[in-house]
């Protein structure tokens, strides 16, 4: 039987050192809303819990020349309360706002939501659609990875032993940009996405879509970046025909499972519906900006 220890280092180097030393026996504690459920459900038996919330960089929010950077352990409530970030990336905030209750968001972080590596994580599709990059620290130093490349399968990430996500950086937004995240659940709150859809678009002055990213959650082993759905918008006035094509491309990209939260057929069908609705809102926001 393993003994559990707890550490709360106040520097990144110390945290990385502890993680590297403990190897597979270590678990990172950010908000704890996933890891403590696993721990007390006897689904994991770590030797060391490394609480990273005392490391300043992990909970910092900053902006430089229009490019936002958020600490990976920043709580959902803190992020939602940050007026500047919320105004810049409403779709990301919509994703964060759906991570559990107010109580859960008082603790849960975007970094944890990503690294828990659930295909249904609500903040991940909008991060992918935003083109956010995960800044990673590890025994071998720092590296960057696009968010869509972090999750490699249910519960699996591309992080090497001893590595952790430190922060996320967002690209500077051109004018006439907008994003949106919508998710489908039977209840209004406190549910796991049956389908999640994020769309991020940029229009030119004439209203033609010049850039788009579409991401879907809960419809495949990992959150998806759906390039075909984005391509359906790019170069078009984002009219009904383009939205129909986007919707069809979203459905076509799905590779879901049947489970207690939804059937394959249901997920495929509603992924198209939700992608279109998210696109409509993202476009409306882009036209206003």
């Amino acid at each position: 039987m393993t003994e559990l220890n707890y550490a709360a280092p106040d520097s990144l180097d110390a945290a990385v050192g502890m993680l590297a030393d403990a190897g597979a026996g270590a678990r990172i504690l950010a908000g704890g809303t996933d890891v403590l459920v696993l721990l007390h459900g006897d689904l994991i038996e770590p030797e060391l819990i490394v609480d990273i919330k005392n490391i300043p960089e992990l909970t910092d929010i900053s902006v430089e020349d229009g490019a936002w950077k958020i600490g990976a352990a920043t709580s959902g409530m803190k992020l939602m309360g940050h007026e500047g970030f919320a105004a810049a990336w409403p779709g990301v905030i919509e994703g964060v706002a759906l991570i559990g209750s107010i109580q859960v968001k008082g603790r849960a972080s975007v970094g944890g939501n990503l690294c828990n590596a659930s295909p249904a994580a609500d903040s991940v599709p909008p991060l992918i659609a935003a083109g956010a990059v995960a800044n990673i620290a590890g025994p071998g130093g720092r590296r960057d990875l696009p968010v869509e490349d972090v999750v490699t399968g249910p519960g699996q990430t591309a992080l090497e032993a001893g590595e952790m996500v430190v922060s996320f950086t967002f690209p500077k937004r051109p004018p006439h940009s907008g994003d949106c995240y919508l998710r489908l659940t039977p209840r209004t709150e406190m549910d796991i996405a049956v389908v999640g859809a994020a769309v991020n678009v940029t229009l030119d002055d004439g209203g033609t879509c010049t850039a788009a990213r579409v991401s879907l959650g809960a419809v495949a082993p990992t959150p998806l970046l759906v390039e075909d759905a984005a391509a359906a918008l790019i170069g078009t006035p984002a009219d009904d025909a383009a939205l129909v094509a986007l919707s069809e491309a979203a459905s076509a990209a799905c590779d879901p499972i049947d489970d207690k939260r939804g059937t394959i057929a249901y997920r495929i069908k509603t992924a198209g519906v939700m992608a279109r609705r998210a696109a409509e809102t993202a476009l409306e926001r882009a036209r206003r900006n």
């Binding site: 039977p186 209840r187 209004t188 709150e189 406190m190 549910d191 796991i192 489970d259 207690k260 939260r261």
Partner: peptide, 16 residues
């Protein structure tokens, strides 16, 4: 049993 939790046994919440 596949859904022995309040997360997956979906009782109405206040906003429902």
């Amino acid at each position: 049993l596949d859904n022995p939790s309040f997360l997956d046994y979906r009782m109405p919440v206040a906003s429902d």
